[in-house]
């Protein structure tokens, strides 16, 4: 009976979509998820290195988000909020399934051809080669913007471990970049 123009929701702000989803609008929630899913997927991939599990993690993220949305105080910051939920769910997976399954491939990307020569590609490749904890710490800090304390809590390790792992990761990534120049 009532049909909004189909593209209208896709143009809505995050805050509006959050308000509607908090009121029970599944369609708005779907638009919100579609908007942020690719970046969340990349983030979870980087944290867990288990692309085959990422759909499951994202589903957990979405369910947790749906349940917690009505309490979200700053709807305009929903992306950062989703990142925090993604971190929790990613590490929950790693705790549930602690055995490390080694990836024999890089995190899947197209477009490798174009940037193979530049530092970005070198960093991505180096990140994939870093020991898991070093890569996690670096991603949580530099991509997720977490504090040392936040990272320590997420990983369940002392802050000193976080500092050490971060220093290691930075050193190796800087070396990589030096080599790429």
């Amino acid at each position: 009976m009532f049909d909004a123009s189909p593209g209208a929701l896709a143009q809505a702000s995050d805050a509006l979509l959050v308000d509607r989803a908090a009121d029970g609008d599944g369609r708005a929630f779907a638009v919100l998820l579609r908007r942020h899913a690719p970046v969340l997927r990349a983030y979870v991939n980087r944290l867990t290195r288990r692309p085959s599990e990422t759909d499951d993690v994202l589903q957990e993220v979405a369910i947790a988000a749906w349940q917690a949305l009505p309490g979200l105080e700053n709807p305009e910051h929903v992306k950062a909020w989703l990142f925090r939920i993604a971190e929790r769910q990613a590490f929950a997976l790693l705790r549930r399934q602690p055995q490390h399954v080694e990836l024999d491939e890089e995190i899947p990307t197209r477009g490798d051809e174009e940037d193979r020569s530049d530092a970005r590609h070198a960093i991505r490749a180096a990140l994939t080669r870093l020991p898991e904890q070093q890569a996690q710490v670096w991603v949580l800090r530099e991509v997720g913007g977490l504090s040392y304390a936040g990272i320590a809590e997420q990983l369940g390790v002392p802050e000193s471990t976080v500092r050490g792992a971060l220093a290691q990761a930075r050193k190796k990534l800087l070396d990589t970049m030096g080599g790429a120049r």
């Binding site: 599944g26 690719p38 970046v39 589903q59 197209r110 970005r120």
Partner: peptide, 20 residues
């Protein structure tokens, strides 16, 4: 970094339908 990886990856949102 994430945005670039997201842009480069094949889009697969089937999980969203399941969640809904």
């Amino acid at each position: 970094l994430l945005q670039q990886e997201a842009d480069a990856a094949a889009r697969d949102d089937r999980w969203i339908d399941e969640v809904l």
